[in-house]
Amino acid sequence: MSKQMMTLKKLSGLSNFSISTVSKALADNPEISVKTRNKIKGLAKLYNYSPNLTAKNLKERKTRTIGVIIPNILAHFFAKVLAGIEKEATEQGYHIITCISDESYEKEVKSIEMLANGSVDGFIISISKETFVKENYQHLQSVINKGLPVLMFDRVTNRIDCDKVVINDFESSYNATKKLMRSGCKNIVFVSPIHNTSVGLERVRGYKEAIEEELIYKGKQETLIIEDYKRFSKDFLEFIKHNKVDGVMAADELSGIYTMNLIIGAGFKVPEDIAVIGFTDGILAENSNPPLTTVDQHGTNLGSIAIKKIVNRLNNATETKEYKTTVVETTLIERGSTIFS
């Protein structure tokens, strides 16, 4: 008998047990005795039997697949989150289908529509910049209304009720800004390419809070915010001279390194003249010159948590409708772009 053609029905005939008993034995159902389970498993191994997962999934009305939509695969943070999602999904017995919105609302909508037609059991998504600008989240609400769970991570919106996994963006930015102040920085600029996202808004809010506290208590500091950091380069030298900038708080890794390069190109020293802190502990931050001090967002762990939460939601869909936001604590990694005592 061909091993490749082995089916549950044929295995039933070989073992002299019903199809139901064979199925339960292979699933380690305690209704079946250990002796019978071992006998059936031995035959299954001998004849190279493997269950028809497609048929099983159709019966259970599950694909055991999660759709993952991220704005940018080149950003180290999203790559780390994706790695955490992939690893944990495999351990949970799930597959993932990854789509990249490329910061486009249209691509995000098309990805949702394509996967929501029976391809996945739920979605993990970080919202694109364009979606935030349009403030249109109907595509997400639609799939939730169909019974497909949605989990948002990193970039989220309060206009959709669902599970969320985020970092403490406000607190992280606030603490990093305070750290620059304690190191002697008196004029700190905030640089951001993500000002129109939930993440960017929370990070600039943390920066502002730290600056405004200093202004109230000591009569120093003013908020200096650069939203389009690439335009910053045109009049950079004049800007930092006029504002006597001695510290930079960057909303992500690339803007931190870009700004640091502009500083050095303008003849200033990092960190002696101007100290720099960014977000995301990526390969670029670790290998820049000098290495960039960063807020580590623990992306791999965040991805792992996201999968656990959505799988738990899928397995307990009828038990609770209460949605929760999980906050992942960050860590400041001190490197050569700052001098802390």
Rank of each mutant, 00 (worst) to 15 (best):
153 F>T: 07
182 R>Q: 15
166 V>H: 01
123 F>P: 06
124 I>A: 04
157 T>V: 06
174 Y>E: 09
157 T>M: 04
199 V>M: 01
144 I>R: 10
194 I>D: 00
161 D>Y: 10
176 A>T: 12
193 P>C: 06
152 M>G: 07
168 N>C: 11
125 I>P: 03
181 M>Y: 13
198 S>W: 04
192 S>I: 00
141 Q>W: 06
189 V>C: 12
156 V>N: 02
158 N>F: 10
141 Q>V: 11
128 S>H: 00
164 K>Y: 03
172 S>L: 07
143 V>K: 01
182 R>C: 13
174 Y>L: 13
123 F>W: 09
169 D>K: 06
175 N>K: 15
186 K>W: 11
169 D>C: 09
122 G>D: 04
172 S>H: 03
124 I>Q: 02
166 V>G: 04
153 F>G: 08
147 G>M: 08
138 Q>T: 15
176 A>G: 10
178 K>Q: 15
158 N>Q: 13
149 P>T: 10
130 E>I: 07
159 R>G: 10
148 L>Y: 10
184 G>R: 10
128 S>I: 00
140 L>W: 05
196 N>V: 13
177 T>R: 08
188 I>R: 04
173 S>T: 00
173 S>E: 03
191 V>Q: 05
127 I>D: 04
199 V>D: 02
165 V>D: 05
128 S>Y: 05
168 N>R: 09
141 Q>F: 10
189 V>N: 03
189 V>S: 09
191 V>W: 06
159 R>K: 15
199 V>F: 03
185 C>T: 12
196 N>C: 10
187 N>K: 12
164 K>G: 07
144 I>E: 09
188 I>G: 00
146 K>D: 12
170 F>W: 14
156 V>W: 02
118 G>K: 07
154 D>N: 12
156 V>G: 07
161 D>Q: 13
154 D>M: 01
127 I>P: 04
186 K>P: 08
133 V>L: 14
198 S>P: 03
152 M>F: 08
135 E>Y: 11
134 K>D: 07
128 S>A: 13
193 P>I: 02
188 I>W: 03
117 N>G: 13
186 K>Q: 14
154 D>Q: 06
160 I>L: 06
186 K>F: 09
174 Y>C: 08
151 L>N: 06
118 G>T: 06
188 I>P: 05
171 E>F: 13
141 Q>S: 15
140 L>P: 03
117 N>V: 08
121 D>T: 09
194 I>F: 02
139 H>R: 11
157 T>R: 05
176 A>C: 13
192 S>H: 02
138 Q>S: 15
134 K>E: 04
117 N>D: 15
147 G>D: 07
197 T>G: 01
181 M>I: 15
176 A>V: 11
135 E>N: 15
132 F>E: 03
172 S>N: 09
155 R>Q: 11
154 D>P: 06
153 F>K: 04
137 Y>K: 13
179 K>V: 09
191 V>P: 02
177 T>A: 12
178 K>F: 10
155 R>V: 02
154 D>K: 02
199 V>S: 04
165 V>E: 00
179 K>A: 11
151 L>K: 00
135 E>S: 15
121 D>I: 07
122 G>F: 03
142 S>A: 15
181 M>K: 12
127 I>R: 02
120 V>E: 03
125 I>A: 02
